[in-house]
Design a protein around this nucleic acid. Structure first.
Lengths: 115, 115
DNA sequence: CGGGATCCACTCCGATACTG
DNA sequence: CAGTATCGGAGTGGATCCCG
């Protein structure tokens, strides 16, 4: 099965529950410090933020720049290679939005998750 | 956060570990019976196959046609709406493939997952 | 400040067995 | 044949504490 399988490979990199949000912020701000990211996504724990960032770094999607000084500082940014992801993410996002509208047509607006 | 969040919504529908493969087969064969799908994806259990199919059905991506007879038969097919997913899946797949090549450049071919 | 280590809770998935 | 119900394991994410 040559085709349709790299989809899962792609998902392994993009899923992870927090990666889309992290990438979203990084695409917007170009460069963000660890703390800025953490404040932008308050619900994430430091552990998870670090873990997801490390994975993205491994996949050459984000770059980690360490600034040694007394209050240590680390800046994260999207790599040139990582920027290629943008149209794909955008396409997925567009589909997600239009699909939400489609679901709305079919079932009506569901606010609470049934009772 | 209006943007970059529908990505996760889209993932909820497309991820699930088996959905891409199921969709892949369905896109190829137009119409498949439950057993055919099961034979096409031997590793999946009946429980999972049913569950994933039901979710896709709920999201109006696949259609379930029940043929009542003594050996019961059910045919699954992609809906018209579901066909819109094809280019998206293709794009994700393309990126996954090119990314695999990129990883190969960076780290070389890794066959075993390091002992 | 950035991030690693440990422990725990929860969810997802597989194996098996049963039903219509 | 198509599908459901139950159980149990594995993997994932969260809270907390500790280290540079």
């Amino acid at each position: 099965m040559p085709d349709g399988c790299s989809v899962e490979a792609a998902f392994e990199i993009l899923v992870g529950k927090w990666k889309p949000v992290i990438l979203f912020h990084l695409f917007k701000h170009e460069t963000m410090k660890f703390t800025e990211l953490h404040k932008a996504i308050p619900d994430i724990t430091k552990k998870m933020l670090t873990a997801q960032l490390r994975e993205l770094e491994y996949h050459d999607i984000v770059h980690r720049k360490i600034i040694l000084q007394i209050p240590p500082k680390v800046e994260y940014s999207i790599t040139e290679y990582g920027k290629k992801l943008r149209p794909l993410l955008q396409a997925i996002n567009d589909w997600g939005m239009s699909h939400a509208a489609h679901m709305n047509e079919l079932y009506g607006i569901e606010k609470s998750k049934s009772e």
